[in-house]
Design a binder for these strands. Structure first.
Length: 573
RNA sequence: GCGCUCGUAGCUCAAUAGGAUAGAGCGUCGGCCUCCGGAGCCGAAGGUUGCAGGUUCGAUUCCUGCCGGGCGCACCA
């Protein structure tokens, strides 16, 4: 199946070309887009206005030439001119029905694979370990994972790599904390709490105690130099943290192909720096080794500190090299918060100077904050991710228990898990990634309105309809009945369904999960209107089968779409 | 000071290669269960898209200035 927008745009481009053979229209894109306002057809082409200057003609006149040219297309019922020169396109309802049948018979629901043959490394999540995850960690994992799923679905060969913060200053701080007041028993009993305590207390001291800070840095340098005792401590801290991380990832349904943390690149750092120096890109400055990026209009970037330690930039440069050379990535996509924009500009600039041609893209998202302002581990006003997920599941559990008491308790638990986690994920993903997020429990846990559970609910109701139909008409094969789009809701629903493929590609290529979320919400809304106002199980034979088929495709799209956002869909809810 | 970014209904947010009448949710008010699941549906009220200019047939969208938030700017990551 071809994308609807593309089909119509290509056709329109041809029509314009044949209407105005004496002009070169190559430079102007003649696009057809879905109509924004009801009553102006299904699609519209606005090119006539834009071409008025090029063609030296009144735009309305141009539109008339196009509409009266006699050009036709199997998908198009009629064309109309409106306003200053809008060309409104009305689709042929039978054609829509035929497309819907084709879509319903396709396991991919008509979504093509434009990314085929491209390997892309996705870098998201990447939490600093040795500290528990809090709600601020949600976005990178959530948004990254959704983009990952969408890109995979449209054919990219994605390698999801969790670039864990398992190396660096925080370990110097934690190791000093351990030396000062480490409690072996506590570390055994509740490792994350103990690691957090050590970090927080030790970090506090760095703020007031200059010597302490120096010691922390020295411990880090020792660790980086392979000191035996520090390495053993580090290994233990990492091991405990990873176990905890795995548990949360299981809850969130996040899976990586690789988890190459910063430590993975540790032994490549000296070479990375000497390579930069050898090529004349880096040079000593104030005791550190620095790459100056004046040509790019960027501040200088330190690749080796004056104490001999390496930093984030160094690791990221080594990581680019590894991903390009070892993993054969043609694209690397980083998903981090907005604070790292400058950092990645610097890293990308250095990578370009090193001659890497892979496309490096930084997808940044807005910081999550509380209504009172930013939060931080040090301030003690963090909300643990675990606590959020627990609360979400609990609230969902209460609603399930009330609305579906007949479902066995263990199934209620399972439903509550899917609904609770789905609510949290959807609340985040339905927003433009680049907007800053103000966290409120009310929003994160919403179970109705524009929420994950609303979409899951629509799905569950359809499942129920399909089950009832199968029960009442056990021997019937729905596919033998034609799809009839008699009611205007049905037609609207069908046109919207046909837009799924284009939406998935747009959302994936532009790194915008909220575009997909928006689409699904609209779909569910249209379905609810349909459901509420048009009978289907009680309709006459033929109409009944057509409507049940349509329901089935809506459910398939909702399920597939939600799954691309990492949200599960229970059969009952 | 320089850079990035945001400012849309009472609140939280959509609307991104410029398109016709700026959309949702929450909250408020009013309707809808003899019926396929009410986590629902239908309707109402609510807007000078921060302000002032500019480009354009057309600007929430692009440009300039101003006001007001957020974030970043060499040895944290």
């Amino acid at each position: 199946m071809e994308l609807l927008d593309t089909t119509l745009s290509d056709w329109m481009t041809g029509v314009f070309a044949s209407c105005f053979p004496d002009h070169d229209l190559e430079s102007v894109e003649i696009a057809v887009v879905a109509t924004t306002v009801e009553g102006f057809g299904d699609y519209q082409c606005n090119a006539a206005m834009g071409l008025a200057r090029v063609l030296q003609q009144n735009p309305r006149r141009i539109a008339e030439s196009v509409v009266n040219s006699g050009a036709d297309h199997e998908a198009v019922e009629k064309l109309e001119i409106a306003g200053p020169g809008f060309i409104n396109i009305y689709l042929n309802t039978d054609w829509i029905a035929a497309q819907i049948v084709a879509m319903g018979g396709d396991p991919r629901l008509g979504v093509p694979v434009p990314g085929e043959g491209q390997r892309v490394v996705m870098d998201y999540g990447a939490p600093n370990i040795a500290k528990p995850l809090h709600i601020g960690h949600l976005r990178s994992h959530n948004i990254g994972s959704a983009i990952d799923r969408m890109l995979r679905f449209i054919g990219y060969e994605v390698v999801a790599d969790n670039h864990l913060g398992d190396w660096g200053t925080q370990f110097g701080i934690t190791i000093m904390g351990w030396r000062e007041s480490g409690d072996a028993e506590a570390l055994e009993q509740s490792p994350m709490a103990e690691l957090e305590r050590l970090y927080v207390e030790s970090y506090e001291k760095t703020k007031t105690d200059e010597d302490w800070l120096t010691c922390c840095r020295q411990e880090l340098v020792k660790l980086q130099a392979g000191d035996e005792e520090n390495t053993a401590l580090w290994r233990r801290f990492v091991e405990l943290s990873l176990k905890e991380l795995e548990r949360i990832y299981a809850r969130l349904g996040i899976r990586y192909d690789l988890s190459r943390g910063e430590s993975f690149y540790n032994d490549q750092l000296p070479d990375t720096v000497s390579d930069l120096e050898a090529r004349g890109l880096a040079r000593p400055s104030e005791g550190a080794i620095v790459v100056f990026l004046e040509e790019e209009g960027l501040p200088a970037c330190i690749v080796r500190k004056s104490d001999g330690g390496f930093n984030y930039a160094t690791t990221d440069i080594a990581t680019v090299r590894s991903r390009v050379e070892q993993l054969a990535a043609s694209r690397i996509i980083y998903v981090t918060d907005e604070r790292q924009q400058l950092h990645f500009k610097q890293v990308f600039a250095i990578a370009a100077r090193l001659g890497y041609t892979a496309s490096l893209e930084h997808v940044w998202f807005g910081l999550m904050r509380l209504p009172q302002g930013a939060f931080s581990t040090r301030e003690g006003n963090v909300i643990r991710l675990d606590a959020l997920l627990d609360e979400a599941e609990e609230r969902a559990r209460a609603v399930v228990a009330e609305s579906s008491p007949d479902i066995p308790p263990d199934q209620q638990d399972e439903i509550a898990r899917m609904v609770g986690i789905g609510a949290v994920k959807y609340a985040d993903l339905s927003q433009n990634p680049q907007s800053a997020v103000t966290f409120t429990w009310e929003k994160a846990l919403a179970l109705n309105g524009n929420s994950g559970p609303y979409l899951q609910y629509a799905c569950a109701r359809i499942s129920s309809v399909l089950d009832k139909y199968a029960e009442r008409h056990p021997a019937v094969s729905l596919a033998e009945y034609p799809v009839i789009l008699g009611e205007s809701v049905e037609r609207k629903l069908a046109v919207h369904l046909l837009q799924f493929a284009g939406i998935v590609i747009q959302a994936g290529e532009n790194f915008r999960p909220n575009v997909l979320a928006d689409y699904l919400y609209e779909l569910a809304g249209m379905y609810s209107t349909f459901y509420q106002n048009v009978p289907f199980l009680r309709a006459d034979e033929g109409v009944r089968e057509s409507r049940v088929r349509l329901c089935g495709i809506v459910a398939d799209v909702l399920r597939q779409g939600l799954s691309l956002l990492g949200i599960e869909t229970p059969k009952r809810i």
